[in-house]
């Protein structure tokens, strides 16, 4: 329950005024039956902040970010996105999801639609943007993730890295304020990971608020404002990357880093 004290970025100037929270999670608990998946999670993410969440499998890191856009329903505590608390109200849930883009481990592109169609379906259906305008937007984002020439192809015709970049473009087409990445490079070949990470780094440099579940520690070092280590459904340690890697405070964090950094 001490997590709130550990946020180094907050109120650094000592003005007493907190910056607006992009995501505010207080006292979050989630169970799958008897299994306690998330345990008293407190997390405040300010606008523009880049968070990397790591931890062993089953530690609850994916569940945590999936609670933020309500792909998982939390049992206790509160989650607010842009000041709006997530409840069961479907309108609130949809309003929140509109502000949040998500990138999945398995891309989850719609296989029966071309890449362009994947990108325009939500802007047209949810935001009621005209097709011509939606396509123009989509092409600009496809150019930004450097696959403009793939617009008319089906996902199955693209490499894994291209598919993941298309999925990032699809999420960006909704102009989200926050991007969630759920192990975006775990399904990719090592030599392809870099092209996806480069896309994510470019996004971070543009000031996007990002929560990334990933084990790419080089990426964490390069762009994260904070690294969060989770284990058994709890946040074990939160630190700026320099401290996190050089001077982990918790034994469990040191064990984990010894396992993955070699």
């Amino acid at each position: 329950m001490t997590n709130l004290d550990e946020f180094p970025r907050e109120d650094e100037a000592g003005t007493g005024i907190k910056p607006p929270a992009a995501v505010e999670i207080i006292g979050l608990n989630k169970w799958y039956g008897a299994y306690h998946a998330l345990h008293d999670i407190d997390l405040r993410v300010v606008t523009g902040e880049r968070i990397v969440i790591c931890g062993p499998s089953g530690s609850g890191k994916s569940t945590l970010i999936r609670c933020i856009n309500r792909l998982e329903r939390h049992d206790q505590g509160s989650i607010s996105v842009g000041g709006l608390e997530l409840t069961d109200d479907p309108k609130r849930v949809q309003a929140t999801r509109r502000e949040i883009g998500m990138v999945f481990q398995n891309f989850n592109l719609f296989p029966h639609m071309t890449i362009l169609e994947n990108c325009v379906v939500a802007p047209m259906s949810v935001k009621k943007i005209a097709r011509a305008q939606a396509e123009e937007l989509a092409r600009s984002f496809l150019a930004r993730v450097r696959i403009p020439e793939q617009a008319k192809k089906y996902p199955g015709q693209l490499s894994g890295g291209q598919q993941q970049r298309a999925a990032i473009a699809r999420a960006l087409c909704m102009s989200p304020r926050i991007m969630l990445f759920d192990e975006p490079t775990s399904a990719l070949d090592p030599e392809i990971i870099k092209e996806v990470l480069d896309t994510m780094i470019a996004l971070a440099n543009d000031g996007m608020t990002m929560l990334c579940v990933t084990h790419e520690m080089g990426f964490a070092r390069q762009i994260a404002d904070r690294v969060i280590f989770m284990d058994h459904g709890r946040i074990v340690e939160t630190a700026a990357p320099a401290n996190f890697f050089a001077n982990p405070q918790q034994v469990r964090t040191r064990q984990f880093l010894n396992q993955i950094l070699r």
């Binding site: 792909l71 949040i100 939500a122 259906s125």
Partner: peptide, 20 residues
Amino acid sequence: GQTEAGYALGLGYATILRRI
């Protein structure tokens, strides 16, 4: 994951059913 991706994009279930 197809339904989840639809939800994550802000689509409702009726649209997910019809389009995806």
